[in-house]
């Protein structure tokens, strides 16, 4: 028998409201993506899948997705390698220098995006990196490294470095020790760092807006310029697709993670 408790009901109600408030803006794009007319009005009128068709057919849209995926993949690889090496170096230093280097590496997270973007743009103008693959990868890697350093650093903090001593006593060189002992044990941190790096690049918009060119545009830039030019519901279709993809990835990650923990 549960007694009626007004305090508890109030708590549940406020939780529900906050949950709706958090998710609703994301969910709004789904009905909008099926709108009949070329307008971003809510609630949408009619039903059609033409905006999805447009996204895949229009090279402006689909091309920018491919560009974004390629850049994000490259950033994930480069930032993960550099960030992992940095995290290991910082962990080994154990002195004040390690702390200073760590703070330096994390600054891109703290410095306002616009400030960073202006700086990068100024340097890129001189070095002709604006609108180039190298330019995007370099800028996004800069932004992604802090996430890798944090993720791998957290894993290294619980890694038992004495295992490396044991490996040495068993005849493994430092390099072999790294690949057979250290790497497998900090792999969860490296993988989550790589995922963070990928996502950081994939949805980066501020710096990308500065260094973009008509020939090489990432998806967020394409979304932004489309929104400012006209009310194209393709934006909503893109939003819905990304929402679906991230939900799937996170869902699978949770299932996989839970199963591994259960084993």
């Amino acid at each position: 028998m549960t007694r009626f408790r007004p305090g508890r009901l109030l708590l549940q109600l406020s939780c529900l409201l906050i949950a709706i408030w958090l998710v609703a803006p994301t969910l709004v794009v789904i009905p909008m993506s099926f709108a009949d007319r070329k307008s971003l009005a809510f609630p949408p009128q009619g039903f059609s899948t033409q905006w999805y068709a447009n996204f895949f057919a229009n090279p402006q849209w689909f091309g920018s997705l491919v560009v974004s995926l390629k850049i994000a993949a490259m950033v994930a690889v480069v930032a993960t390698i550099i960030g992992t090496m940095a995290a290991i170096g910082i962990e080994r230093l154990k002195t004040r220098a390690g702390g200073i280097i760590r703070v330096l590496l994390l600054t891109p997270m703290i410095v306002p995006g616009v400030v960073l973007a202006v700086g990068i743009y100024a340097v890129y103008l001189d070095t002709r990196l604006v609108g180039t693959w190298t330019g995007y990868v370099l800028a996004h890697t800069l932004l992604a490294i802090p996430f890798v350093v944090i993720a791998v650093g957290a894993n290294l903090a619980v890694f038992d470095a004495r295992l490396e001593t044991a490996a040495a006593s068993l005849g493994a060189s430092r390099l072999t020790t790294f690949f057979t002992v250290t790497l497998p044990l900090i792999l969860p941190g490296i993988l989550s760092g790589a995922l963070f790096a990928f996502v950081t690049s994939f949805d980066e918009v501020i710096v990308s807006l500065f260094i973009t060119s008509p020939q090489l545009k990432t998806l967020p830039v394409q979304i932004f310029s489309s929104m400012t030019r006209d009310a194209d519901p393709t934006v909503a279709a893109v939003g819905s697709l990304i929402f679906l993809a991230t939900t799937l990835i996170i869902g699978l990650g949770l299932i996989f993670g839970l199963r591994r923990r259960g084993a």
């Binding site: 038992d160 004495r162 295992l163 044991a166 006593s169 005849g171 060189s173 430092r174 044990l185």
Partner: peptide, 29 residues
């Protein structure tokens, strides 16, 4: 260097590799 000395070491904290089975641990050296 330590890895070229060919000396067996047993530690107080065991220092077994947690991602390897018992057989893989013993096969490591």
């Amino acid at each position: 260097p330590a890895h070229k000395r060919n000396i067996g070491v047993v530690f107080q904290h065991y220092a077994l590799f947690p991602h390897m089975s018992v057989a893989q641990n013993v096969a490591y050296p």
